Computed example of a mutant assay.
Amino acid sequence: MASASLSLFSTLSKLSSSLPTSPPKLSFPLHSLSVKFNPPAFSLSFPPIFPGLSRLHSPKNHRPLASLTDMASDKRVFDSGDDLAVSLAKYTADLSDHFANKRGAFTVVLSGGSLIKCLRKLVEPPYVDSIDWSKWHVFWVDERVVPKDHVDSNYKLAYDGFLSQVPILPGHVYAINDALSAEGAAEDYETCLKHLVNTKVVDVSAASGFPKFDLMLLGMGPDGHVASLFPGHPLLNENQKWVTFVKDSPKPPPERITFTFPVINSSAYIALVAPGASKADAVYTALGGGSSQNAETLPVQRVAPEGVLTWFLDKDAASKL
Results as ranks from 00 to 15, higher is better:
V273L: 11
L115C: 03
A295V: 06
S27R: 13
L115S: 00
Y269R: 05
V204A: 14
V273H: 04
L8T: 02
E255K: 04
L119P: 00
S111Q: 06
A317H: 08
D129L: 11
S134Q: 00
S96A: 11
H98T: 02
K315T: 11
R302D: 12
A72V: 08
K117M: 06
K148A: 14
S3Q: 15
F99Q: 08
N177R: 00
D70K: 13
L193T: 02
N38W: 09
P231Y: 12
Y284W: 15
E183F: 00
E124F: 06
L163M: 05
P299Q: 11
V201G: 06
R144K: 07
I49S: 13
G232V: 03
D94H: 02
W311C: 08
G184C: 03
A185P: 00
L272E: 03
V86G: 09
Y127F: 14
P47V: 05
N38H: 10
L180G: 01
S16Y: 01
T191A: 11
S319H: 11
P170L: 13
N265D: 08
D149Q: 08
A93M: 05
V151E: 15
K135Y: 02
E306N: 09
R256C: 04
L110F: 04
H31R: 07
G171T: 01
L68R: 09
G224C: 13
G52P: 00
R302K: 15
P254I: 06
Y155V: 07
D214Y: 02
R302F: 13
I168M: 01
Q293M: 13
S34M: 08
P222G: 11
S34E: 12
S87E: 13
G224F: 11
G288A: 06
H233V: 08
R256G: 03
D82G: 04
D79Y: 10
H195F: 03
V123Q: 08
T199I: 07
T92D: 00
A268Q: 07
P23N: 12
I49T: 09
V308T: 05
A185N: 00
N154C: 12
A85H: 01
P252D: 14
G113W: 01
S7V: 07
G224W: 11
G171H: 06
P254M: 06
P170R: 06
F106R: 02
V123P: 01
V35N: 12
D129M: 09
Q240I: 08
L287A: 09
H233R: 13
K36I: 14
S13L: 12
V35G: 13
Y284N: 15
N239S: 15
P234R: 12
F213T: 07
G52M: 03
L110C: 02
R103A: 11
A105M: 04
V109N: 04
